[in-house]
């Protein structure tokens, strides 16, 4: 205490050794608990049904999971800011319909369909973001409204009949293989790397965490709130579009309901992966694990012969339970 009151000695020369804290066993456990849950789930299902661990089934699982993972990453970005984007499912529909339209109703090249779809996703995210940042609607209200705008646009573009039979180069994105690995998995890997880098190593990514952790302090620290928020929704819209493209390419057709079922898993996956709905915490790796858990649960149900009609019931329960767990974890901290 004396030392500190003495001015000369508080000069900044003294060499403080930084402590590198070793995470406690509890922390390590909780960090890997999700991975552990995933492995346990895999082991459990493979015990009940030997087909599960077959390479063909696993590749199938991953391929199925691809759009889900990409869309969940979009939701992760929004969760980090403390918001929610209920429109993601319908953005998936709308953007895949846009790509379907370009592919089948115009003479434009197949890659233009991708650009158009991603552009449409970005635009939708831009509008949602403006409603939240400028009009200051709660994110749930704004994005829920945009859900129906997106759905309506999908209907309007499609008219009476669905689009199908896309060119092979486009279908390659959903069904093709590169070096023996399905294209969707490549796409997911690339996007996961980009998003991981973006969240960890860019100032914009860091600002997203800051806004979610404490919007008041973020503003007082000179972060431009509106601009950052809007970019979060734009990115999430673009990711939903990429999810839609993979889906359309795999199914070789688009219809007006294809995205709706992605919303609930997209909420549950990040939360199960440790991204808090309250914002400021979470990341890419957790969301991928969370998405895989979601997919494997449904895949496992199929393998175990449970009627897929019950799937929504399970998803609903999983959403409620995972968000509840998130609430409990936050209270404990």
């Amino acid at each position: 205490m004396n030392k500190k009151n003495n001015l000369a000695e508080t000069e900044m020369t003294e060499d403080v050794q930084l402590i590198h804290e070793k995470p406690s066993i509890g922390k390590i456990l909780s960090r890997f608990s999700r991975l552990g849950a995933l492995l346990l789930l895999c082991i459990g299902i493979s015990l009940l049904n030997q087909n599960f661990l077959k390479v063909s089934n696993l590749i199938n699982v991953f391929r199925q999971a691809a759009p889900q993972i990409v869309i969940s990453l979009g939701m992760t970005i929004v969760f980090l800011t403390g918001g929610i984007d209920l429109s993601l499912g319908s953005v998936v529909t709308m953007t895949s319909v846009v790509s379907g339209y370009v592919l089948t109703q115009t003479e434009l090249p197949w890659w233009f369909a991708i650009i158009a779809a991603i552009g449409a996703g970005a635009l939708s995210g831009f509008v949602t973001g403006q409603l939240i940042a400028i009009v200051k609607l709660p994110s749930a209200v704004a994005s829920y409204g945009m859900l129906w705008v997106g759905r309506g646009l999908a209907f309007a573009i499609m008219g009476a009949s669905p689009f199908f039979s896309f060119p092979d180069s486009f279908r390659y994105l959903g069904r093709g293989y590169l070096l023996g690995i399905p294209m969707p998995i490549w796409i997911v890997a690339i996007i996961a790397l980009i998003m991981g880098w973006f969240l960890k190593y860019t100032t914009l990514g860091r600002s997203l965490y800051a806004i979610g952790a404490n919007p008041h302090a973020a503003r007082a620290s000179g972060i431009k709130l509106s601009r950052t928020l809007v970019s979060a929704y734009i990115i999430s819209g673009m990711l939903a579009a990429i999810g839609g493209i993979i889906l359309a390419a795999r199914l070789n057709a688009v219809d007006q309901d294809m995205g709706a079922s992605f919303l609930l898993p997209a909420i549950a996956s990040p939360v199960m992966g440790g991204t808090s709905m309250a914002g400021g915490q979470g990341g890419v790796a957790g969301t991928i694990i969370g998405s895989l858990i979601m997919i494997i649960v449904t895949n496992g149900m199929n393998l175990l012969g449970i009627n897929s009609l019950w799937q929504q019931l399970v998803t609903g329960i999983v959403v409620v339970l995972s968000v509840w767990l998130d609430v409990i974890m936050r209270k404990r901290n």
Partner: peptide
Amino acid sequence: FVATLGTQGI
């Protein structure tokens, strides 16, 4: 909104 979406699924 999450709770009621969950119930919707159920």
